[in-house]
């Protein structure tokens, strides 16, 4: 009966923490499932149960498909492009260049600002005709370029993603830089002696040694992409139309503008399922890669 490691009674000490965890974490999540089948409007406490009506309307509406698509595009681009750029920058900043410290901090500075500030500044940069990019293009004589970045259906989403990458690249660069410090010189030297070129050194020595950093960075940017909300909220209000609605943004709009907490909860459950599925796939594949590397 008596465990050699720990007395059974010790488990009771977990209870207070568990209690709080259940009250403030598990219970609200279960509440979400309850609300998803009601017409709760967020603050009038007597509501009706409406079955799966919320899900039915969601599946009939354009906004579900648009926001899922946008979220996936957002995530894919921030993960792939963001990490490739971050890796290139990290390699540059790891090279023996002058004023390395200055460049390293310069690339990290955007990360320090709040998303609100960054979004606000960039909406001025993107402003048509008068904005920084528009006036720069006009200065160098490219007047017939369309400079309406945030107001165009085809460009708004990508313009926002670019800002997100710009802001968050510092974090990824730092993680890659830290990873690069752990690549042993002996291995690189051995590779050189064996006659490997720069690309081969990178592909067969540096990159495998960076596997952990890659996993961390990809996981972080997948999470960041899937819960994208700040920039659509600050820079475009999900617009033009609903073209930059992400899952979380659509949920926020539904809950707080339409006052359909029930429907928003239903959307919450759908995105919960999507996010869980993507995370599982990611973690499983990356774990395998890391072990084999």
């Amino acid at each position: 009966m008596n465990s050699a490691v720990m007395k059974k009674t010790m488990y009771f000490f977990v209870l207070p923490a568990l209690l709080f965890y259940c009250i403030f974490w598990i219970f609200p999540i279960l509440k979400l499932f309850q609300y998803s089948v009601t017409d709760y409007n967020g603050y009038v406490q007597n509501f009706n149960y409406v079955g799966f009506n919320n899900f039915k309307t969601l599946f009939q509406e354009e906004v579900l498909v648009t926001s899922i698509k946008n979220t996936l595009v957002y995530t894919a681009i921030t993960v792939i492009l963001g990490n490739i750029i971050a890796l290139l920058l990290a390699l540059l900043l790891n090279a023996n260049i002058r004023a390395k410290g200055f460049y390293r901090s310069a690339f990290y500075i955007p990360t320090l600002f709040s998303a609100i500030v960054v979004g606000f500044i960039w909406s001025y940069v993107y402003m048509p005709q008068e904005g920084l990019i528009a006036s720069f293009l006009a200065k160098i004589g490219l007047t017939n370029w369309d400079t309406n970045f945030l107001g165009s259906y085809s460009k708004a989403l990508y313009s926002i993603i670019a800002v997100d990458i710009w802001k968050n690249i510092g974090t990824s660069v730092i993680i890659f830089l830290a990873g690069l410090q752990t690549v042993p010189h002996e291995l690189l030297e051995a590779g050189k002696i064996d006659g490997a070129g720069k690309w081969k050194l990178f592909r067969f020595i540096t990159l495998p040694m960076l596997a952990t950093s890659v996993t961390i960075n990809i996981t972080l940017s997948v999470i960041n992409g899937l819960k994208a909300f700040d920039f659509p909220f600050i820079m475009t209000n999900g617009g033009p139309g609903i073209s930059t609605n992400t899952l979380i943004y659509a949920m926020y709009k539904m809950a707080f503008t339409d006052q359909l907490f029930g429907k928003a909860s239903a959307l919450g459950i759908i995105s919960f399922a999507i996010i869980i599925a993507i995370t599982i796939v990611c973690v499983l594949t990356l774990n395998k890669k890391e072990v084999s590397a």
């Binding site: 107001g151 259906y153 617009g239 139309g241 709009k253 503008t257 339409d258 006052q259």
Partner: peptide, 20 residues
Amino acid sequence: WPAGVSDVMQSKFAEIIGGK
């Protein structure tokens, strides 16, 4: 109108402005 109708008006009309 219930809150939310004007939002649809805005987002749908934005499509007209956006040249759709």
